[in-house]
Simulated assay, not measured.
Amino acid sequence: MNELPIIQKTYDLIKWYVPILNRLPRTHKFTLGDRMIGGLYDILEELILARYAQEKLGKLENLNGKIDILRHQTRLLREFDLMSIERYEYVVKLVNDIGSELGGWIKQQKKRSSP
């Protein structure tokens, strides 16, 4: 089965990001790191479920908020000096790509649901 590009990009983000988050110092790993990892897995699961849902729009709009939370958490990592600027720029691009795809999917669903 062909994956939707947004699902594949989220999967790739998890493969790249989780090992980095698992290497955070103890003071951040069990708070921010674990929350971020849980959030990443939630985003992937919800994207997969939305793919098969009859009513996609509500699920997709909820995901928009989760992606924004991930952006802010990533920014905190950078501001706590727990991530290099290069890694930060890379992950921000990945997250923004996922956000753009999600925005397109939401737009498509709004067109379908309007009379």
Score class of each variant (00 low, 15 high):
80 F>Q: 12
39 G>F: 01
29 K>I: 06
46 E>T: 07
90 Y>T: 15
101 E>C: 02
30 F>H: 15
1 M>Y: 05
80 F>I: 01
91 V>H: 04
14 I>W: 01
101 E>H: 14
59 K>Y: 03
65 G>A: 11
6 I>H: 03
32 L>Q: 11
7 I>A: 03
38 G>L: 08
39 G>E: 12
114 S>L: 13
86 E>W: 07
73 Q>I: 00
96 N>H: 12
45 E>V: 05
75 R>A: 06
37 I>C: 04
50 A>F: 00
47 L>T: 00
57 L>P: 02
26 R>C: 02
107 K>F: 12
42 D>G: 03
66 K>C: 04
2 N>K: 12
34 D>E: 15
52 Y>K: 07
37 I>T: 13
79 E>V: 07
88 Y>S: 07
62 N>I: 07
83 M>E: 09
59 K>I: 14
26 R>V: 04
40 L>M: 15
110 K>D: 06
77 L>Y: 00
101 E>G: 14
21 L>A: 10
29 K>M: 03
40 L>I: 09
19 P>G: 09
79 E>G: 05
7 I>C: 02
87 R>H: 14
5 P>L: 13
60 L>Q: 01
1 M>T: 06
46 E>W: 00
25 P>G: 05
9 K>F: 04
81 D>N: 14
76 L>T: 11
109 Q>W: 04
53 A>N: 04
69 I>W: 03
103 G>K: 04
62 N>Y: 04
93 K>I: 10
26 R>K: 15
85 I>G: 03
73 Q>E: 14
60 L>T: 02
97 D>M: 13
37 I>F: 00
84 S>Q: 09
1 M>W: 06
113 S>C: 09
20 I>R: 14
92 V>H: 08
87 R>F: 10
103 G>Q: 03
38 G>T: 15
68 D>T: 15
46 E>N: 09
52 Y>P: 05
48 I>H: 08
102 L>N: 03
36 M>S: 08
38 G>H: 15
32 L>K: 12
62 N>T: 09
92 V>F: 02
105 W>C: 07
78 R>D: 03
109 Q>P: 04
113 S>D: 08
66 K>N: 08
34 D>S: 15
112 R>T: 06
36 M>A: 10
111 K>S: 07
17 Y>H: 07
33 G>H: 10
38 G>F: 07
36 M>L: 13
86 E>P: 02
103 G>R: 08
28 H>Y: 13
58 G>K: 11
95 V>F: 08
74 T>P: 06
32 L>P: 00
9 K>H: 11
115 P>N: 14
5 P>Q: 13
20 I>C: 05
38 G>V: 04
40 L>W: 08
32 L>V: 05
74 T>W: 07
104 G>E: 11
99 G>Q: 03
25 P>T: 08
3 E>M: 10
3 E>L: 10
19 P>A: 04
50 A>Y: 02
98 I>T: 00
107 K>S: 13
87 R>N: 15
88 Y>K: 02
72 H>I: 09
81 D>Q: 14
25 P>R: 05
